[in-house]
Simulated scan of single mutants.
Amino acid sequence: MSLDLSEVKRIANLARLELSEAEASSTLDKLNGIFSLVEQMKAVDTTGISPLSHPIAAIREHLSLRLREDVVTESNHREDYQKPAPATQDGLYLVPQVIE
C-alpha cells in the first residue's frame, strides 16, 4: 500500500492540519516508508514461532524480564482528599449538572 500526495492532503485536512507543499511531500515519503516496512514485516513467515512474553527472551532466555509483585505500597487517603470538597457521596465527588 502506498499513498499519493492528494491522499496525504486529504488526511491532513481531516485532522485539521495545515501542511505546506514541502511538509506534505515529506510526510508522504515518511508514511510510504512506514507502509513499506509494514509490508516487509507481513511478508515474513512466522508459522511455528510461538509468541514471546518478553522480546529479550528471544536473545537470552535466562534474562527474561521479571514482573514485580502486585502489592499495595501506599495507604488509602480518599477521606482526607474529600474533606475539602464541597460535596461528596459514596466516595465520589458531586459536581453541578452541566448537560441536560
Rank of each mutant, 00 (worst) to 15 (best):
S50T: 13
V8Q: 01
N76Q: 06
L52S: 11
L28F: 00
G33P: 03
S25V: 01
T27W: 00
M41G: 06
V71T: 13
D70K: 15
L94R: 07
G91Y: 03
T88P: 02
I99R: 15
S6W: 00
K42I: 03
E100W: 02
P86L: 04
R60L: 00
E23G: 08
Y93H: 09
P51G: 08
G48V: 02
H54M: 06
S26N: 14
H54W: 06
T73F: 11
A12D: 01
V8A: 00
A24K: 00
Q40H: 14
L63M: 11
L19P: 00
L37M: 14
E39F: 06
V72T: 15
V8R: 02
A87W: 12
S36P: 00
L37H: 08
V8S: 05
R68V: 01
H62C: 11
H62E: 14
L67I: 09
D90N: 08
E18L: 04
L92W: 12
A15K: 09
V38D: 02
I49L: 12
D90F: 05
D80R: 14
L65A: 15
A85S: 10
M1G: 12
V8I: 15
L92N: 05
A87N: 10
S6H: 02
E69I: 07
L94V: 12
V71L: 15
L52E: 09
T88Q: 03
A12M: 01
S6T: 05
S53R: 08
A58I: 05
V38H: 04
L94Y: 06
E23C: 05
N76R: 09
V38Q: 02
L17T: 05
H54T: 08
L65Q: 15
E79K: 14
A24L: 02
H77F: 12
A57Q: 14
L5N: 02
L19D: 00
P51E: 13
R66C: 06
T88M: 04
P96K: 09
Y81H: 11
D4K: 09
R16K: 15
V71D: 15
H77Q: 15
A12F: 06
A58C: 06
E18F: 02
Q82D: 11
E21D: 15
A24E: 01
L65E: 14
L94D: 09
D29K: 14
D29R: 11
D70R: 13
L28M: 04
E79F: 06
R68L: 13
T47Y: 10
R68I: 08
L63A: 14
A57Y: 04
D80W: 12
L92D: 09
D70W: 07
I11E: 13
L67M: 10
D4I: 08
P96N: 04
P86Q: 05
Y81Q: 11
E69Q: 14
K9R: 09
L63N: 09
S25T: 10
D70T: 10
E7F: 03
K42C: 04
M1A: 12
T47A: 13
E100M: 01
T73N: 07
R60P: 00
G48M: 05
E79D: 15
N13C: 00
L17C: 08
A85I: 15
S20F: 03
E23Y: 06
I59V: 13
R60F: 03
Q89K: 10
T27Q: 04
M41I: 11
R10D: 14
S25W: 00
H77R: 15
E79M: 10
D45C: 08
